[in-house]
Design a protein around this nucleic acid. Sequence first.
DNA 1: GGTTAAATGGACCAAGCGGTCCAAAAATGG
DNA 2: CCATTTTTGGACCGCTTGGTCCATTTAACC
Lengths: 195, 195
Amino acid sequence: MQTGRPLEFDPQLAIDAAMGVFWLRGFEATSLSDLLAAMGLSKSSFYNAFGSKQQLFEACLVRFRRRHVERMGEMLHSAASPLAFVREMLLTNAREAREPGPRRGCLIMNTATEFAGRDAAVAACVEDAARDFAAMFRTAIEMAQEHGEIPRNADAAVLARYLLTTMAGLRTMVKAGLPADELEKVVEVAMSALR
Amino acid sequence: MQTGRPLEFDPQLAIDAAMGVFWLRGFEATSLSDLLAAMGLSKSSFYNAFGSKQQLFEACLVRFRRRHVERMGEMLHSAASPLAFVREMLLTNAREAREPGPRRGCLIMNTATEFAGRDAAVAACVEDAARDFAAMFRTAIEMAQEHGEIPRNADAAVLARYLLTTMAGLRTMVKAGLPADELEKVVEVAMSALR
DNA sequence: GGTTAAATGGACCAAGCGGTCCAAAAATGG
DNA sequence: CCATTTTTGGACCGCTTGGTCCATTTAACC
């Protein structure tokens, strides 16, 4: 079995580059040439390696999900307490409003609003990611309950979905132009629902 | 001063039709022919009356905002109590998940995520609408405070923004595919932050 | 019924879209 | 250094995009 010429680019890195563009501009507003420019590929290499714009997009969603679930896990692990982790997560979302430059929000939430209704495969990616994020929150809440930070009779699954909802809302409000300091106060109100 | 031939269509009705399409599909994914078909206009009538796709879009945003602020006002007025109004608002958002067919969410929130970062005029429309919605919530909260439903020392403006955030989050979660009954439980958690 | 102002349908536009295809180049294993 | 496998650049595709333009029709006023 012959090997042939090896790939000249790193597919993972290319996906990362594409992810950045999709993240910033969404699916529809991103053109093929935008992608090619960002990835540094020719058209044929692109189609050879990724099939189509939408397939690449789905790959980006999967990669985004994996990476961010991982990052959440690390944050939970290194946080002062489970509840501190939750607060930190929400604050991180709110504080995007503080940064200069464009607000890109969360790729998954963006996709849910822009695209999930139109394509089943994409919708599945979004649902999977949402489930994963909620599961991370649920773990944190159960830990907090054992810690005594949250009442033990509370329904951890419902609280987890509540937190996910709040996260999504914060991201939307950032995009809608609310200032960071106001959103940080909103986070404190949101946290008060856990007690 | 001569009058000339009168318009053959009702511009308001045409905007309503266009709004429906934008609401469902977003700005980028809506093509001119989609709009013309929905509005029942020829291309020249369209450009004559509305200037461009984006100008029409902005008109839709303005109209959407006016209509929904109005509707919120009516709901607040006819509600059993200010707090009941708030709960009803949130539940209305959550219950979109119960309806068959595509989920369109809220045109303003959709636009915030899809488009607000790229165009200043559109961003301004979104900010204005967000401010109006928040103001309605604020009125409701202040009424609830006088009613004794919410502690008087709470910051009504912050709570209002919290509610707006929750609304936006609920709409996103509906689009992400969470079932209605779970979202209704989330609403109850969210409401508990007001007490 | 003529005059005027505006609406209308449809031809037309260049540019961009996502996607295909192929001949040439290149890197590996033998 | 040859054979095999794969990548690569670029030509090419049909189609759609948002938008313009104009000759014609239409309605209202006097």
